[in-house]
Amino acid sequence: MSGVPGAPVPRLATPLALRSVTLRNPVVISPMCQYSAVDGMAGEWHRVHLGRFAMGGAGLVIVEATAVTEQGRITPGDLGLWDDRHVGPLRGIAAMLRELGAVPGIQLGHAGRKASTQRPWQGHGPLGAEDAARGEPPWPVVSASPLPVADGWPTPHQLDRDGLAAIVEAWRTATLRALDAGFEVVELHCAHGYLLHQFLSPLSNTRSDGYGGDVAGRCRFPLEVARAVRGAWPDDKPMFVRISATDWIEGGWTLEDSVVFARDLKALGVDVIDCSSGGMVGVSATAAAVPRHPGFQVPFAETIRREAGIATMAVGLILDGPQAEAILRDGRADLVAIGREALVDPNWPLRARQQLTGDGDFDGWPEQAGWWLGRRARTLDRKTP
């Protein structure tokens, strides 16, 4: 690697060990729903979409929210792992990511009352008659309590003990399928107003049966799911949990609640808390009427890391290499995750490293591209007055 002689290697370019899994760097591609599956099956879009991030130098690439039950899909286009037939295409994707140098991860989720929704570009509302006419009819939704996500949305069925047990088992078997598919990191989705977040937040959980009430009661079901996933996942492989660290709403889930929850997750063997926020109200996954600025969620990762004593991942408007490096160097998080910036530039991890090292020779880039780009850079240098 070129650059300043004797300069320290950036944290952004330093390998990170999590249990027996070593990431080539702490840059993670966040799970980003593509709403492009057919009957839960991954296709060529998913393969190309994810492969470009591995080529671009990310240490960990996490496959989008993948439904543990058919009823738990956000939209008809969601990926699934509720059936053995879903394993084959995902196995090919995991193997491809690994071959390209990235660790393959997958996020497992259930949408709860936010299920049975149109794709964003089809309206982002509840499925209705027009959707049914094109072969995508609505389906019943479930939640912690019979409270719809918004006016005009279906009222969910409140899960009883049998329903809760069935969903725990669905998460467990989906985890086993993820392992069979070759993934090395599993992430449990407890954020963005989806089912497990619906249990955590007092805005969506009004139960009085031991799965509601105080923080301990509202955490009970998510912790049961986390225990089942950790039990099915090998001891030598890391487990992440994505949370909404705050609802951003008076009377909702708070950062203080998240610290308590993170401590409980750590006791179960969770390795990393992925710190997002919002999503409890509105249809958008992260909807919240809050000012958004670069790194606006980083304080959540910093607080949980410090107060719960667990590794954290920062996400949300992390825009460039110096910003990401400062987050890691200052001990505010252990990993940084990018999403939409990677859609703009799939080579973001490689370009961020260049920003930090002054490496103009494209060392570390795939050689199929790097040798071309190195020649181009030298040509441009010669033409600079």
Results as ranks from 00 to 15, higher is better:
L179T: 06
I243D: 03
W248M: 08
A144D: 02
A174W: 07
T312E: 14
P8F: 00
G43T: 01
V344W: 08
V149N: 04
V215P: 01
A111G: 04
M32A: 02
P222R: 07
S116I: 11
G152V: 03
C275V: 00
G210P: 09
T357K: 10
I327N: 01
L90Y: 00
L159T: 06
I243F: 13
V259M: 09
N25E: 09
R306S: 06
L200C: 15
L12W: 08
G217S: 07
A95M: 00
G125F: 05
E64M: 12
H293K: 12
I93N: 00
Q122K: 15
E187A: 07
M32V: 10
V38C: 02
V149G: 00
V87T: 11
W253I: 15
H86T: 00
G321E: 07
A191P: 09
G278C: 11
Y35A: 05
S143C: 09
W248G: 08
V241W: 15
T69H: 10
W372K: 14
V142H: 10
A37H: 05
M1V: 13
R332V: 03
W248E: 09
L268R: 03
G72R: 15
E341R: 13
V344L: 12
Y211K: 04
P222T: 06
F199T: 14
G269M: 10
E136V: 14
I318R: 05
G101S: 10
A94G: 06
P89A: 04
A129Q: 13
H124Y: 14
